[in-house]
Design a binder for these strands. Structure first.
Lengths: 184, 184
DNA sequence: TTTGTTATTAACTGAGTGGTCAATAATGAG
DNA sequence: CTCATTATTGACCACTCAGTTAATAACAAA
């Protein structure tokens, strides 16, 4: 009955997530967004709304994709709790001093540079953080650190900050070892 | 011999630190900077250089002031190590959901939104982070957690992220309790 | 093929950006 | 006082920003 969309919604959402992930909210211009998605401003506005809406879409996509995957791994009963935390911390070690690793965690980035200034963003970030915490609760529930969920959850975000700062892999390896020592 | 400066250098540096602390690098415009310092652009340029230089001055001031004070407290031999960590974590609890508390830690903010994009900023941030770590090393050296310096250091930055996200005081209280449990 | 509807495009807007500069003002030295 | 030097000011610049709009294009229904 009318002209159909030419783009694939999911592909565009992934591109949005990536461009905001890499550059942050303020660091991302429409020039970046248009290059990343292959769409013109008009299409973006009519499909999703303004820049803030695009950002919230990106955060939502991050939660339903990346966060969900991390939580699934942390809840995977085919591994021991310790193995799951080991795997998560190993991700941090491998992220250190790499290009994409230094994109950090979109959730953590959003918490630091947008949550205090925008209520909608704050709400989404808090939800996603709780989502992450549920993963840690699952992973730790049968370990010695079952009473340290908040600590290890917070530690994870701290690790993301450390990576962003440019810390070497060695520092992350130390952090991983010290974290695992809490579980046994 | 020539016209003297009308502003007090230290006052201006504090204002610079505060304005970048609150709004971040990209979130701070010259309009903000001029309002905060009471100086015109020309004066700022001739005295300090471009916007990036102003930011680096602000970070330097933060290191020589705020970070230095925190390290001094963490090294204060009039308290036990546990008391020093308690005091630091109490600061986090009190920062939760307050206006200035949600400015976060300028160092942590810089790590997340500038370090990956600007080499000079990265260098200053890494130095300041090491500076902080030296404080934790002092505080923990006679405690049960002497082998967990990197962990507690990272945890501190994680706590700053949690606060930025808008987490309630209760979460920070839990975090504080779990952290102190590592020391005894 | 005509028509109604929606998608796409590119030119456009006005406000705001970081940065510059020429004119002016304030000082101390001679 | 006169002059050299430096500080301050505010107008100005080119550019980029997010956001709008009018024209065009692609489809389905009739």
């Amino acid at each position: 009955m009318a002209r159909p969309r030419e783009f694939d919604n999911d592909t565009v959402l992934e591109a949005l997530r990536d461009v905001f992930w890499e550059h942050g909210y303020e660091g991302t211009s429409y020039a970046n967004i248009m290059a990343a998605t292959g769409l013109q401003k008009g299409s973006l506005y009519s499909a999703f709304g303004d820049k803030r809406s695009l950002y919230l879409e990106a955060l939502s996509r991050y939660d339903k994709g990346n966060v969900r995957d991390a939580v699934a791994m942390l809840s995977n009963e085919n591994m021991t709790g310790e193995q799951r935390i080991d795997a998560l911390m190993q991700n941090l070690v491998e992220a250190a001093q790499t290009k994409k690793g230094r994109w950090g965690c979109l959730l953590c980035n959003a918490a630091v540079d947008q949550a205090p200034f925008n209520k909608q963003t704050e709400t989404v970030v808090l939800q996603s953080m709780d989502h992450m915490k549920s993963g840690f609760r699952q992973a730790l529930k049968d370990t010695k650190a079952a009473d340290k969920v908040d600590l290890i959850w917070t530690l994870y975000f701290g690790g993301r900050v450390i990576i962003k700062s440019g810390a070497p892999k060695a520092t992350l390896k130390t952090l991983k070892a010290q974290t695992l020592s809490l579980l046994k």
